[in-house]
Amino acid sequence: MSVSEDSVRDMLAANLKRARSERGLSISELSRRSKIGKATLSQLESGAGNPTIETVFSLSRVLEVPISDLLDAAPTSGLTVVRAEQQEVLSGEGVDLRRLQRIESGDTVFEVFDQQVRGGRKQESLGHVGTEHTIVQAGRLQVQVEGQEVELGPGDYVGFDAALPHSYAAPDAAVRSVLLLQYRADQRLHLADATPAGAHEAKD
């Protein structure tokens, strides 16, 4: 897939630097808190890195911002059509995510993802801000939240506090699902209103 100026890599580069500056964190401190190497963070901020699900969710957790504040899924109005094949894939150890849309309604923000859990694989998360909702479309999905495990089939739903440690696993064939991340509007960093990067950036 071709990488445009609106690619995940480019959007993360700009928003990560702004979010870090807004939080007053140096690269060294962000590295310490997120367990992501300084060199990797520098590459991400320069647009040269290769972000993974683990990286983006770890940054979301440490910076306490929704995923969309890092990936900049701008809201749209009117008819919105998003073609799955045109969206970049954000991959992790066991999951491939395609970001489809951000929906804002009153004090609530939803991020909508097409989520595929690869067969025989598991994706773990230490937790991040928001509430997580998953609806299985095809396959059998094992979900574990802070030690409690459930298995879901097509049409089944699970929701939980995303701050809790959790994991998804597809013990057999690949699983197709819809992932919705829900936030309160006051949990957002509102990067559009932030001071431009570099104006008062915390130094390494």
Results as ranks from 00 to 15, higher is better:
81 V>N: 13
15 N>M: 00
90 L>Y: 11
188 R>A: 10
30 L>G: 04
60 S>E: 06
74 A>P: 03
28 S>L: 04
50 N>I: 01
79 L>I: 15
195 T>R: 14
41 L>Y: 03
196 P>I: 11
165 P>N: 05
12 L>I: 00
95 V>G: 01
46 S>V: 01
75 P>R: 03
105 S>Y: 08
77 S>E: 14
11 M>P: 00
51 P>R: 05
73 A>Y: 13
202 A>K: 08
171 P>Q: 01
113 F>D: 03
198 G>T: 07
75 P>F: 06
119 G>P: 08
31 S>Y: 02
14 A>F: 06
120 G>C: 09
187 Q>P: 14
35 K>N: 14
126 L>V: 08
74 A>F: 09
139 G>D: 08
58 S>V: 06
19 A>K: 02
129 V>I: 14
85 E>K: 15
164 L>T: 00
35 K>C: 07
153 G>R: 07
100 L>P: 07
66 P>Q: 11
140 R>G: 04
192 A>G: 15
121 R>Q: 13
57 F>D: 04
64 E>M: 09
118 R>V: 05
184 R>E: 12
155 G>N: 06
38 K>W: 08
10 D>A: 10
180 L>Q: 12
131 T>Y: 09
173 A>S: 08
42 S>H: 13
160 F>R: 00
63 L>S: 09
195 T>W: 10
108 T>A: 08
31 S>W: 03
119 G>C: 05
172 D>K: 09
191 L>Y: 01
18 R>G: 06
82 V>H: 10
62 V>Y: 09
142 Q>L: 08
97 L>C: 05
11 M>G: 02
36 I>E: 11
166 H>R: 00
7 S>A: 06
73 A>G: 06
152 L>T: 02
138 A>E: 14
81 V>P: 07
199 A>W: 09
80 T>C: 07
85 E>N: 13
43 Q>F: 09
95 V>W: 03
176 R>Y: 05
111 E>M: 04
38 K>H: 09
115 Q>A: 15
163 A>T: 14
196 P>Q: 11
171 P>H: 00
134 T>A: 13
116 Q>V: 12
49 G>Y: 03
3 V>D: 13
201 E>F: 01
68 S>I: 01
177 S>Y: 12
184 R>H: 12
6 D>H: 09
91 S>R: 15
202 A>N: 01
175 V>P: 07
40 T>V: 12
116 Q>F: 05
150 V>W: 13
147 G>E: 04
30 L>N: 04
157 Y>F: 15
28 S>R: 11
95 V>L: 15
69 D>W: 10
135 I>S: 05
41 L>N: 00
50 N>C: 03
